[in-house]
Design a protein around this nucleic acid. Sequence first.
DNA 1: TCCTCCTACGTCAACGTTGACGTAACCGAG
DNA 2: CTCGGTTACGTCAACGTTGACGTAGGAGGA
Lengths: 333, 333
Amino acid sequence: MRDVAALAKVSTKTVSRVINDLPGAGPEVVERVRAAARTLGYRPNLTASSLRRSDRRSATIGVLFEDLSNPFDSALLRAVEDRARQGGVLVLAGSSEDDHSMQRELLLSLSARRVDGVVVMAVGGHQDALQQERDRGTPMVLVDRPPTFGGTDCVTTTNRDSSRDAVLQLASLGHRDIAFLGDRRTLWTSQERYTGYLEGLAQAGLTLREELVRTDLHGADLAEVAATELLDLAKPPTALFTAQNLVTVGAMRVLRARRLQHRVALIGFDDFPLADMLEPGITVVRQDVPGIGRKAAELIFARIDGDTSPPVHAVVPASIVRRGSGEITPSAD
Amino acid sequence: MRDVAALAKVSTKTVSRVINDLPGAGPEVVERVRAAARTLGYRPNLTASSLRRSDRRSATIGVLFEDLSNPFDSALLRAVEDRARQGGVLVLAGSSEDDHSMQRELLLSLSARRVDGVVVMAVGGHQDALQQERDRGTPMVLVDRPPTFGGTDCVTTTNRDSSRDAVLQLASLGHRDIAFLGDRRTLWTSQERYTGYLEGLAQAGLTLREELVRTDLHGADLAEVAATELLDLAKPPTALFTAQNLVTVGAMRVLRARRLQHRVALIGFDDFPLADMLEPGITVVRQDVPGIGRKAAELIFARIDGDTSPPVHAVVPASIVRRGSGEITPSAD
DNA sequence: TCCTCCTACGTCAACGTTGACGTAACCGAG
DNA sequence: CTCGGTTACGTCAACGTTGACGTAGGAGGA
């Protein structure tokens, strides 16, 4: 900047004025400064600028999800990024791997870089680190899972209601033995979906068979094992409700291996690519991922812009997409 | 920091020493400062620090891909992020949408934040903005597509050779009418894969039927149209080589709609989730995405650490994954 | 003519941090 | 007891930028 000022024969302050399109610079001077900046390849230093400016904005937000390579997470990231770009804001992204210390470290890293706000998919269990950061005044929005502390916005989907609807659909087809396969019980979404499952059973007048409930299935491999065990029961389930992405995939593999994919009904929570191309197509509860991302972005930017209205818990509705696997009736045998 | 110093009754310099674990602070003072920092909720300001420090590092790199919600891009991002985290480096991520002005703007944004380096999936066509940034001294690694200018590292896969091998495999099964369906011709990868297709035909002694070559299919919808037209030809192809992810999906849809999925052979470039669960399983050329990401990260961090050896073009081998659709022999009729 | 107001600049200090350097106290060796 | 060296601090300025304020010159009105 000093070099630009010297070359244009003005003060650095005037260069600043030109770069930021502030008034108080004559047209001739503006041109001289612009030319000098071009020839020197000058790039303003936003970090120095935000250090000095009164608003202290870094024009950067943090996004802290579980696994950026997961389709759900990356779709969410993309939605947030699109909204951010409209305001000239960039996104610092990190994967917490559902690990508390990782989440904590990443949060500190973001804090050290003075991000204007963070969008977090909270790790299950306690949220001490999140609350601490929130209490320091960092605008924060939780996605997918609500905060266990107050004063923070959050965006989730209709986990419980949609799970209940899925179970009710299966029950209405005549299924009486509906299994539940869920992810880690520490995750709020898992709990909600399980509660929805229970509500569905109750509303349909079905009794819970505890041996048909399998939880803590983190990843497709564990889900495969659980599905195998369920189908090996003396009285196996005639329908499966799989409460997460990868769990659905694991269950599908087992059904296909046993050629049961047309005999055992399956509804999964979370859509995934190509679910419609399988034989049969997989019926799923589809979350409105871009909708969730947009809402989260909208909330975080409102808070950054000083919105002090009471915290919001936005719920973005999910819907059942019928593709075949969830419309299978119980086998005669 | 001043507040911490005041509370601990030391100078800010001593606080700095304690925070950075530098020698020159007595154990008692260290404890006082740590306690003061804790009670005040002090967080170091990395931007101010990097402004003043001699090395000028922001401990942040930029990642500029085409679409972060694309599985290929997000897997790559994840691999880079994992490597970055090991060095305490965070990732600023952006989607260029294959648009020159977007890429340019994001690049300027990254530059303004003084990232230590950038990993870029270059937009097709000219690379003026990239070269300009590179010439300013920003360490840069291109992934998936090589630079059109010199002096820059890059990581790609065996686009040409693997495409040739795919075509040779189809030819060896007796296919003589093998169609090519490709993405935008401005993309280097498309060109390479097309060249591999031509090499494969030539090596197998097959003549090129130009009406079987369809390019500029950006997205599954365009691919569907093209596949439909190909199958409507008087002498339709008995095998398809689809040179990109979404193109493969589009072609698959058409084959299934016409119940030809067991009669027309299909090999796709790029793997995708659940390709093994379809009927038949889809034979693909699988890139080693984590390998590419790791290599790109390794290169960028080496450059950031001052490696001045000649630029490298790393080629990470892809391999054919046989799942059924690429092993179909030509129909009798 | 003189005073006021506005425009187009410049000067200075400060944002939070650290490199360079200074200094006082203490330690061990000769 | 002195002297060189080490340890444990402190002081000062600077990184690149901008808010606050100062000033010179010209335009315009009484």
